[in-house]
Design a protein around this nucleic acid. Sequence first.
DNA 1: ATGGTTTTCATGCAAATGCATTGAAATTGA
DNA 2: TCAATTTCAATGCATTTGCATGAAAACCAT
Lengths: 145, 145
Amino acid sequence: MQEPSPSVIKAWGRLIRAERTVVGRIEAELKSAGFPSLHWYDVLLELKRGPEGRLTPREIEEAVLFEQYNLSRLLDRMEGEGLVRRIPYPGDRRRQLVEITDAGRALQERMWSVYGAALNRFICAKLTDKEAGQLSTLLLKLILE
Amino acid sequence: MQEPSPSVIKAWGRLIRAERTVVGRIEAELKSAGFPSLHWYDVLLELKRGPEGRLTPREIEEAVLFEQYNLSRLLDRMEGEGLVRRIPYPGDRRRQLVEITDAGRALQERMWSVYGAALNRFICAKLTDKEAGQLSTLLLKLILE
DNA sequence: ATGGTTTTCATGCAAATGCATTGAAATTGA
DNA sequence: TCAATTTCAATGCATTTGCATGAAAACCAT
């Protein structure tokens, strides 16, 4: 095997560490404010953005990169909390539509007040806008294909 | 709250997504080659780098950013597989030293042959060395403090 | 049409993780 | 010196995740 270059290995290590570090810090903020995890937020935000606050589970999966079975059960819990509701998908009884409820929208907004503040502290304070743009560009290359 | 800048929000989204994407791809490779997860690899590599292949659990924790209780149980499993062994820490009976075994070293090397190849495919192929360096520099800013 | 395939979502069971706590040993400070 | 505090690791219990599979509906090819 051709060894990966040292600079790539270093970048990879930092990618892992940066993600864990920042996620850890943000999750800690959310928890101490009494909110559920980022996963819940991600689902709520995607739904909110979807047409009429609705998406199919597949679409959510694709958007947030969850496993199908994990999303299925996450939706169970969120439905139990009244944050989303499952409704029939017109014209295809295999599928379903997940719709965000008013309570879901409200929670998303309250979480954002903590989450956004955390992003300010843990990212905005560390990178200039220009650097953030460079970071986006580089990371996009890793995501593609 | 002052809204985080759009470029920061975008960079953050991509950081999450890039990490999930690449980790997912690499884990899939490892699994299909019959190997355990990256977490196991991380511990083995840290130990291998430590003096005489030994570190305390605290040191491993710090290096790989695991929770104490998760590491404790991961070490149980790894010890059960004969990859590491726990030995007394001289002069402090609260602590312990975790030592990588020959089997552990061998596994780390076999895993690297798959892991390194995956890094080539999923990162080296996507970034020039210069870009990898830029990425490292930017990510470091997020990790610090 | 219809039998086989594919897509979509759910679920039983096992494994891993999170949370709170324990227990033991070392350290600190009056 | 010794009681209070801190550090280190393990563990019981609940929650979450992973894996394999199932069931139902839609699709497809003959």
